[in-house]
Simulated scan of single mutants.
Amino acid sequence: MIRQLKRSPLFVGLSEFEIQKVLDDSYCTVSYYKRNEMIALAGDPIFQIMIVVKGSVHTELIDDSGKVFRVDDIENLRLLAPSFLFGDNNRFPINVVSNTDTEILVIQKNYFVSLLNSNTVVLNNFLNILSNKSQFLVSKIKNTFMQSIEGKIANYILNVSKSLGSDNFEIPNSQTWMAEKFGVARPSVARVFSKMKSKGVIECKGRKISILDKARLERCIN
């Protein structure tokens, strides 16, 4: 686990020996969760820093009608709700659910505060995590309120294409996942794919995508 944590944004710049030294067994434990298990409910108090050591989790909102909106996927070595450890409302803002069998390192708040005071590397890393999270949320809000569903899907396709380095690829997520992610009904997602295909912007069959006209796809974002 120590070798894994060396790649965590919280411990960047520390050696394995230094990480081992700061992880006091009296204040640091590992919790285990099965696939699709609820890790935290919206409103649960936050008394600790939680780091995904193995597996991945996602966050979700449920409206009054029971509709689930998938907000974010959190891969291993990332922190859960670090911005809510401090401030007046120390509670999880949304549900946290495991995607796979997951291990989470739990560091008690009082000990973590003393660690921030004594280790400037961890302090700077934590401040960077909070700043990056704020910048990400601003970008996400802009995309949510200012971008059409067509723009969101176009942006998603282009991001996958860029990460894989190819215009011909298989998207990793289903249309149901995209509907939850973008807060729309699944048929709306299907209609966008059908429209892009009929206009010759993409070719798609199942999850297999071929970008035929990247310039037009990029214009969909705006």
Rank of each mutant, 00 (worst) to 15 (best):
A81C: 15
D88E: 14
V52D: 07
L79H: 03
I46T: 04
Q48T: 05
F84H: 14
T59A: 11
N90K: 15
N125I: 06
V57F: 14
F126P: 09
N76C: 04
P82R: 02
I104R: 01
P45C: 00
M38H: 08
L80C: 15
S56H: 04
A42V: 09
D64V: 09
I49P: 08
S118C: 08
S114A: 10
G87Y: 01
L123D: 00
D101F: 10
T120H: 05
T120A: 07
D73H: 15
E103G: 05
K54D: 01
K109W: 00
I62E: 13
L105M: 13
F126I: 07
L41R: 15
V113D: 03
N124A: 11
V71N: 08
F112M: 00
D63R: 05
I74M: 13
P93S: 13
N95A: 14
I94V: 15
N90H: 12
D63H: 02
L85Q: 00
N124L: 14
M50D: 14
N110K: 05
G66H: 08
K67R: 12
P82V: 05
T120E: 11
V71K: 09
V52R: 02
L41A: 15
L123A: 12
V53K: 07
A42Q: 13
V57H: 13
F47I: 10
V106G: 07
R70C: 01
F126M: 10
K109M: 04
E75F: 11
A81N: 14
V122T: 03
G87K: 07
I74Y: 13
V121C: 08
L116C: 02
N76K: 06
R91M: 12
R70S: 10
V97H: 11
I39Q: 03
K109Q: 01
I62F: 06
N110I: 07
M38F: 03
I51M: 04
N124F: 14
N76W: 01
